[in-house]
C-alpha cells in the first residue's frame, strides 16, 4: 500500500468511527456544564444500541434511531432524578446505571434472541452519495463514505453550539455549572437544569449507542460500544467542553483507532497491541496537557480598588 493510500484509508476510518463519540460527547457537554459527570454513559449507549436494533427490526433504521433516543432519555431521566432530586452521588449513580444499562442490554438481547436462533440483521443507515467530494485527495474518499450518521453528528454539533451560546436556556445552563449559589439567587433552579441536562445527556447517549449497530453491522452484540462512552468523557474535556473542540478530540481518538484497526490486517512492524493502546494513550497524554486549563478559572476578583477605573485581574488563566 502506498503512503497516500494508507493515510487515506486511516482518515476514512477515523471519520466513519467518530460519530458515536461525538454524539455521546455532545450530551455530556450539556451535563458537565451544569457540573455533572456521567460515568454511566457506556451503559446508556449499550441500551441505546439494543433498542436501536429492536426498533429497526420493527420499522427500519430511523425507527431504530428513535427507539435508541427514547431509551437513552429514560435512563437519563433516571440519573437526573437520582442525582439532582434525590441528591445521590452522581458518580455512584453513574456506575449503577452503567451496570444496569450494560446488563439490561444483554438481558434484552438474550431474551429476544434465545441461544440457537439466528441473529437477524436490520436495516442500517441510508447510504450517502457524494461523488463531488470523492475526488479530493486523501480526505475525499473518507468524507464521501463517512455515512449519514457522521453528517448527522456534525449537524448536532452546530445545533448544540447554537443552544449553548445563543439561547437563554444555554446561558442559564452554564450559569448553574459556574456558580450554583448565584444562579439560585437569580431565580435559576439548579435542580431543574441538572435534571434537564441529565435527560439531554441520556438522549444523546442513546442516539450515539444506536448509531453503533445501525451504521453498518446491523446486529447487536454485548459490549459492542467498546468503551466509546468513556472515550467521549475524555474527549469532552480535551475539547474544553465546547461542541467544536469535541470534534477535534473525537477525531484525534478515532484517527488512532482507525490506525489500530489497519494494523490488525497489515503488519506495521510494531505489536498490534501497541496500536490498540495508542488511541487511549494519545488521549491520556492530551488530557494531561489540557486538563488544568479547563478546570482552572480566573480567580474571582474580590479586591477593592482605590481609583475609579481599576485594572482587571492580571492573571487571565482560563
Amino acid at each position: 500500500m502506498s503512503p497516500v493510500e494508507f493515510w487515506t484509508v486511516v482518515l476514512a476510518g477515523a471519520l466513519a468511527l467518530c460519530a458515536p463519540i461525538v454524539i455521546a460527547g455532545l450530551g455530556e457537554i450539556f451535563l458537565e456544564r451544569t457540573g455533572g459527570f456521567n460515568v454511566g454513559i457506556e451503559g446508556m449507549m449499550l441500551v441505546g444500541a439494543v433498542f436501536g436494533v429492536l426498533g429497526a427490526h420493527v420499522g427500519g433504521v430511523w425507527v431504530g434511531v428513535l427507539a435508541g433516543i427514547l431509551a437513552g432519555l429514560v435512563l437519563g431521566l433516571l440519573m437526573g432524578v437520582a442525582s439532582a432530586i434525590a441528591k445521590a452521588d452522581i458518580v455512584i449513580v453513574g456506575i449503577a446505571i452503567g451496570l444496569l444499562g450494560a446488563g439490561l442490554s444483554v438481558f434484552l438481547f438474550q431474551a429476544l434472541n434465545p441461544a440457537g436462533s439466528t441473529n437477524q440483521t436490520v436495516q442500517t443507515q441510508p447510504p450517502l452519495h457524494l461523488p463531488l467530494i470523492e475526488g479530493i485527495p486523501v480526505i475525499g474518499p473518507g468524507l464521501a463514505h463517512a455515512g449519514t450518521f457522521f453528517y448527522l453528528s456534525l449537524v448536532l454539533v452546530v445545533l448544540s453550539w447554537l443552544v449553548l451560546d445563543h439561547t437563554r436556556f444555554g446561558l442559564r445552563l452554564r450559569a448553574v455549572g459556574d456558580d450554583e449559589s448565584v444562579a439560585k439567587t437569580r431565580g435559576i433552579s439548579p435542580t431543574r437544569f441538572r435534571l434537564g441536562a441529565a435527560v439531554i445527556a441520556g438522549g444523546f447517549a442513546g442516539l450515539a449507542g444506536a448509531t453503533v449497530p445501525l451504521a453498518s453491522i446491523g446486529t447487536f452484540s454485548p459490549g459492542m460500544t467498546g468503551g466509546a462512552g468513556f472515550v467521549a468523557l475524555a474527549v469532552v474535556i480535551i475539547g474544553r467542553r465546547t461542541p467544536f473542540g469535541l470534534i477535534a478530540g473525537a477525531l484525534l481518538f478515532s484517527f488512532f483507532n482507525s490506525l489500530a484497526l489497519l494494523a490488525q490486517t497489515q503488519s506495521l512492524g510494531l505489536p498490534v497491541e501497541l496500536f490498540q493502546a495508542l488511541p487511549y494513550l494519545a488521549t491520556l497524554v492530551v488530557l494531561c496537557v489540557v486538563s488544568r486549563r479547563v478546570w482552572r478559572r480566573g480567580r474571582v476578583v474580590r479586591r477593592a480598588s482605590t481609583s475609579p477605573t481599576p485594572s482587571p485581574e492580571p492573571e487571565g488563566a482560563r
Binding site: 446505571i97 444496569l100 450494560a102 446488563g103 439490561l104 438481558f107 438481547f109
Partner: peptide, 21 residues
C-alpha cells in the same frame, strides 16, 4: 436470561445510593 444477575446488581447499587442519600 442470565443477564438478570447483572441487571439486579445495577439496580441494587442504584437503590442503595438513593436510600443512603
Amino acid at each position: 436470561p442470565t443477564a438478570i444477575g447483572t441487571v439486579t446488581q445495577g439496580i441494587l447499587l442504584l437503590t442503595a445510593a438513593l436510600a443512603l442519600a
